[in-house]
Each structure stands twice: as C-alpha cells, then as structure tokens.
Amino acid sequence: MPSERASLGLKIAAIGGLLFLHLPILLIFLYAFTTEERTYAFPPPGLTTEWFGVAWRRPDIWEALWLSLKVASVATLLAMILGTLVSAAMSRTSFFGREQISLLIILPIALPGVITGISLRSAFGVMDIPFSTWTIILGHATFCIVIVYNNAVARFRRLSVGVLEASADLGANAFQTFWHVLLPNLGTALLAGGMLAFALSFDEVIVTTFTAGQQATLPIWMLEELIRPRQRPVTNVVAMIVFAATFLPILAAYYLTRTGSETAGAGK
C-alpha cells in the first residue's frame, strides 16, 4: 500500500461490517430471557429464565432434537465414507471423466437447495417411496459429501505422494500404509470435514422441508414456530440450542485445521 496504514474510514467500515455480522445473533440470546411472550418488544419488559424450563418439558422439542441428531449423525457418517473415497480417487490420478465427477460432487451445493429438494421430492413421488428418516438422510448425505470432499482433497494434495510410496517401499502393504501413514495425516482433515458436515446437516431446512413429510427436525420445528408463533421465547431457547450445535463443531473444525495451509470452511 502507498501507506501501510488503513484510513480511519476503512477501519470503521470493516469493523462495523464484522459487528453487523455478529450482533444480530446476540439478540436471539437476549429474547430467550424476555418476560414478553406475544411480541418482540424491545427493550424486553423483564427478564426470566422460566422459558428454559418450559422448553425442557416440551416433548415435541425433544422429539425434533432427537431426529435432528439422528439424521445429522448418519448423514455425516455416510458423507465421510463417500467423501473420503472420492477424494482419495481424485487426489492424484488423472483419468477420463475426472472433471465431470468433480462437477457432479459440487452440483448439490452449487444449485439452490430448493432444486435438490424438489428433485428428491419428485423422485420419491415417482418411485412411491414414503417419507421416513431415511428420506431426510438421503438428501443430507448428498450435499454433505462435498464438505468432506473439500477438506480431504486439500489435505491429500498437501500430503506428498512420496510419503505413501515410501511406506510401500519400506515393506508396508496397502492396509498398513492406510493405517500407519494415511489415516494419521488425513485424520484431522476428515474430522473437520465431518464436523462441518454435521453442522450443515443439523441446521439444514430447505432440502429437509421437501424430504421430511410430516416429520419435524429441529430446524423444521423452528420454521413452523416462525411462521405461526406460539410461545416466542421458547423458540429463542431452541434457536440457542441450534446455534450452539452448529457453532461448536465449526469452531472445533477451525482449530483442527488451523495449522495446515488449508483451513476448513473456506468454501461452504
């Protein structure tokens, strides 16, 4: 730069921008404690912790939370297996159709979620597949593959080919190489990818509305409350849970990959 310091205006704009990104979330926390349950009056007329108790006793919330956890866990596991396989295949060899495959992996998040949703919905309809937990998982795993893939393929690229060859050269068979060399080097990237995939799945609502039928995941439960509010502060309590359930894995993924040249989450 002409001068190595930013102008005051730029500094204010940049930091203001960061605050703009974060402050609204804090409001969610504040409203979870309000005594006003019918409107979003600001400032809250009073503060209370009773809504946490109310939320705790609501069976519909527990059901939705359980479904979300189940879906996110299974979808993440599937995505980790499929994403790792495809990244291993794509990392070094060049073969016919490689470009097309990379496009295919990225497509589920490059196209708007509503497209993925309606596609799956119409396919389920045509094939007479009834909605179930598995229909939700099917959709989630599809768009989670790319998250795991992105993380794993970056690490594969950083890992020199020589290291795998060296292992074979020293007498290790393919399984020993996988266990002693590949997995320890890939581990944190896979874990980070898995956490991001979990966060994405746990929070997903657009595709889910098309694949869930009458079932409610936690985000769907929230969406219904947003459209037809009942006890508003209870929704805030749930929003805090959802926020924490996505925030913590993301933070963990960042710290897992921080030391590497690639950092998790740079591309969603």
């Binding site: 020199s160 020589g162 290291v163 060859e165 060296a166 074979a168 050269d169 020293l170 007498g171 068979n173």
Partner: peptide
C-alpha cells in the same frame, strides 16, 4: 514394491 527387498532414498526424502 512392499515385497521387493529394495529401498529408496527419495529426492524430497519423504519422511513421515
């Protein structure tokens, strides 16, 4: 390679 009693010193050393 793993069954050949031949070992290599790689150009970039390829240490684990």
């Amino acid at each position: 390679p793993n069954r050949r009693n031949v070992n290599t010193v790689f150009q970039d050393y390829a240490l684990f």
